[in-house]
Computed example of a mutant assay.
Amino acid sequence: MITRRTLLGGLAAGAATASGLALAGRAAGTQAPAGRAAAGLPLHIVNASGEYANSSVWVYIVGNDGTQQVHVTPDGELKPVALADNGPDGFTDYAIPLAATGTTTLRLPQMSGRIYTALGAKLRFKAVEDGNGKAALAYPAGWVASDPNYDVLHDCAEFTYNSGGMYCNTTMVDMFSVPLAIKLSGAKEQTTGTLKDGARAKVFADVRASEGFDRLVIGDKRVIAPGHGLDSGLFGKDHLAPAIDEAWAAYASKDLTVTTNAGTFTGRVSGGKLTFTGPGTVSFAKPSTRDVLFCDGTLAAPNDGTLGPVAAVLGAALNRSTLAAHAAQPTTDPAAFYQERLTNHYAKAMHAATLDGKAYGFAFDDVAGWASYIEDGAPKELTLTLTPF
Rank of each mutant, 00 (worst) to 15 (best):
A127F: 04
D296R: 10
V223T: 12
D93S: 09
S55K: 06
A136D: 14
A324D: 02
G278N: 02
T101R: 11
M175E: 12
D231T: 05
G193S: 04
H71I: 04
A13S: 14
A317F: 08
A353P: 08
K273I: 00
Q69K: 00
A205Q: 13
S177C: 11
D238Q: 08
A247S: 13
S185E: 14
I218F: 02
G263V: 12
F265I: 04
G308N: 05
T171Q: 03
F176G: 11
M111K: 10
T103A: 09
P97C: 10
Y52I: 12
L195H: 14
G131Q: 05
D130S: 13
A18C: 08
A121F: 07
G233Q: 09
D291A: 08
D206Q: 15
V62R: 01
T259Q: 09
G357S: 07
F276W: 13
Q69V: 00
N261W: 02
V62C: 06
G164V: 07
Y161C: 04
G35I: 01
A121L: 06
A363Y: 03
F362S: 01
E189W: 05
A335E: 13
R114P: 03
A209C: 11
F159E: 03
Y52A: 14
D291E: 05
P287D: 11
V152Y: 08
L355A: 09
Q69P: 02
R36N: 03
A359L: 05
D333E: 07
I224L: 12
V313C: 04
T331C: 15
A48F: 01
A99R: 09
D291S: 05
Y161N: 07
A311K: 10
A262H: 10
A157D: 04
L78V: 03
L83K: 01
E189V: 14
